[in-house]
Amino acid sequence: MADLARISRIGRLTRALLVTCALVATSAFAAETIDPGALKRLVHQDCGSCHGLTLKGGLGPDLRAQNLQHYDLGVLKGVILDGIPDTAMPGWRPLMSEEEAEWVARYLLEPVQ
C-alpha cells in the first residue's frame, strides 16, 4: 500500500515535471514564433472579411466561441490550415504555421487570451 502510494506520488511528480517542461518548451517556442497581437488582428480583420469583424458571421458562418464548441481543437486547426473543399473557406497554410493555426483555433474556442 505504501509502495503504491509512493509510485502514485512519483507518478504525479513525474507528470507535473513533464507538464512543466512542456509548458516551458511551448512558451519558449511560442515566444519565438507567435505574435498574439498580429494573430488577433488577422482573425478580426482578415477572417472578418467573411466572418465579420465581431465574428458573428457574414458570407461565412458565425465563429463566436459559443457556436464552435462542437469543434475539437485539432479539427478546427485543420479547417484553418486546409480550408473546406467546395466552400468559400480557403486553406491558410500558405500564410501561417501549424503553431499559429493552433493559436488561432484556441483563440476562437476561448477568446480570452
Binding site: 482578415d46 472579411s49 467573411c50 458570407l59 480550408g83 468559400a88 480557403p90 486553406g91 491558410w92 500558405p94 500564410l95
Partner: peptide, 11 residues
C-alpha cells in the same frame, strides 16, 4: 480553365 486555382482570402 487549365490554371491552378488560388485561395481567395477576400471576395
Amino acid at each position: 480553365r487549365g490554371q491552378q486555382e488560388m485561395p481567395v482570402y477576400k471576395m
